[in-house]
């Protein structure tokens, strides 16, 4: 009797195991949290040095058009105007998303509603494969196919926003498509059958019922694609031309935030203004990815309430 009472109250191997399990898994998650915090901290502290240590004016940084951090301008100020990169980054991102979205939604509709059997069977694995193609491969194809083609059509070097947009369009297309497929699949079948039963044509059903019901998630899909495009470095760097100049049209060399970073961070010396200025570009990238993240959450929440 007493033996059992003792057993029932004393710690056992099992209770020790559980303590160990908790310690292990809590440690792992803590490591990830610390990692995220340190990424945010390090990039931010480097990124603000341009403004705190080098006393560059934030507004000048964001609106200046001359990027030449090594030299001073006529008034003795360093030339760190990031506007060309910001404009180019946003241009390629928005253009790529604008072009990719109709294609992505068309393919997604094709896979879920128009030819769900054969279409999905063939397209699904291909899209999965395309999501997995490394960005340098896209960049390489851009460099060997897209850039010469543009050069042929418009003259010049062929590099620029147009080439960047085309490469990014192909890159984000599978991303947006696969998320759009999920979005459309999440619309319950009875939405469709109810609409069709009321005598609506397939297009009316798609347009009035399906796309509306799936709208929040479709938007999320597009923003995911934009986030990917905005942060993409090497593929864009290979076709954009990498000249830190304000883009005046779609076919002159220019530079995105990411391409400027990858091209130059290795050529500058830690702690100097040219280096700090690059970290400030990285900070913009980081902040933008947070913005995309927030947008996705916000739309996700609104979508939840609606349905």
């Amino acid at each position: 009797m007493d033996d059992i009472q003792h057993k029932l109250t004393a710690p056992s191997k099992a209770s020790r195991e559980d303590v160990m399990g908790r310690i292990i898994s809590y440690t792992c998650i803590a490591a990830i949290i610390i990692l995220v915090i340190s990424i945010l901290y390090f990039i931010t502290s480097r990124g603000v040095a341009t403004f705190t240590a080098n006393h560059v004016n934030l507004w000048q940084f964001l609106s200046g058009k001359e990027w030449n951090p090594g030299t001073l301008n006529a008034s003795g100020q360093p030339q760190v105007g990031a506007l060309p990169m910001i404009v180019t980054s946003f241009s390629v991102t928005i253009l790529a998303a604008l072009v990719a979205t109709p294609f992505a939604i068309a393919v997604a509709l094709f896979m879920t509603d128009i030819a769900p059997k054969n279409g999905a069977k063939f397209l699904q694995p291909v899209i999965e494969l395309l999501v997995g193609i490394p960005s340098v491969v896209y960049g390489f194809i851009g460099l060997t196919v897209v850039v010469p083609f543009i050069r042929h059509l418009f003259g010049g070097t062929g590099s620029g926003i147009l080439a960047g947009t085309i490469v990014l369009f192909v890159m984000v297309l599978p991303t947006i498509t696969s998320l759009a497929v999920d979005a459309l699949k999440a619309v319950p079948t009875y939405f469709r059958s109810a609409s069709l039963a009321l005598g609506a044509t397939r297009f009316q059903t798609i347009y009035k019922v399906l796309l509306r019901a799936a709208m929040p998630r479709l938007l999320t899909a597009v923003i995911f694609g934009m986030a990917r495009a905005f942060g993409e470095a090497l593929a864009v760097q290979m076709v954009i031309g990498n000249a830190a100049l304000m883009p005046h049209n779609l076919v002159t060399p220019t530079s995105t935030l990411t391409s400027q970073l990858t091209t130059n961070i290795g050529n500058t010396i830690m702690g100097t203004l040219p280096n700090n200025a690059l970290w400030s570009l990285a900070l913009i990238l980081l902040l933008m990815s947070l913005v995309f993240n927030l947008l996705i959450r916000y739309i996700g929440k609104r979508g939840e309430i609606k349905s």
Partner: peptide
């Protein structure tokens, strides 16, 4: 003879 609904009790046992 033990109240096994006590937080002190070893639930695995």
């Amino acid at each position: 003879g033990t109240n096994i609904n006590s937080p002190k009790v070893n639930v695995y046992e």
